[in-house]
């Protein structure tokens, strides 16, 4: 083969000055040493994907629940039941009185035969000990 230097002398074309040094650097940058992706950039990319996935799942869940609530005929009834239950509970706790406690104590295992105390005496004792009616009722 011809010597490359002689061949270039026979070449009628021009190239920009320093072209061969530049192109070698460019090729090496594109092949052997591609620009490293920084850890921060990589983490940001991963975090972005995770956030997008989480947001998408949340949106899907929200839409599904909304649709089910709107479409399902039992939904309205269930809601009403739930409201009623909570209303009942409020009423129950608001209306706890000595009479109710006496009745509950009577049905519980702590009867007069075992303790030697009547229900009213027991309640009186507990009240003296600064225990609220609701707490006594809860612990029965």
């Amino acid at each position: 083969m011809k010597d490359p230097a002689n061949k270039e002398k026979n070449n009628p074309f021009r190239v920009p000055e320093g072209y061969f040094d530049d192109v070698t650097r460019k090729i090496i940058a594109d092949t052997i040493a591609p620009a490293p992706v920084s850890m921060r950039r990589r983490f940001a990319g991963t975090a972005r994907i995770i956030c997008l996935a989480a947001a998408s799942l949340a949106a899907i869940a929200l839409v599904t629940v909304t649709v089910l609530k709107t479409v399902s005929p039992a939904a309205g009834k269930k809601d009403a039941d739930l409201e009623l239950n909570s209303a009942d509970q409020e009423l129950l706790y608001g209306d706890i009185d000595l009479y109710m406690l006496e009745e509950s104590l009577a049905s519980a295992s702590m009867n007069s035969e075992e303790t030697g105390l009547s229900s009213s005496e027991l309640i009186e004792y507990l009240l003296l000990d600064n225990i609220e009616l609701t707490d006594i009722y809860d612990n029965l």
Binding site: K7, E8, N11, R14, V23, T31, I32, A33
Partner: peptide
Amino acid sequence: GKGFSLLLDKYSRKLYWHIRRLVILH
């Protein structure tokens, strides 16, 4: 990496001129 650098040194000019004679524009 080292082998490719040597390959570039040896052939980048030859291949450039071969390509250039075919496509004409730099």
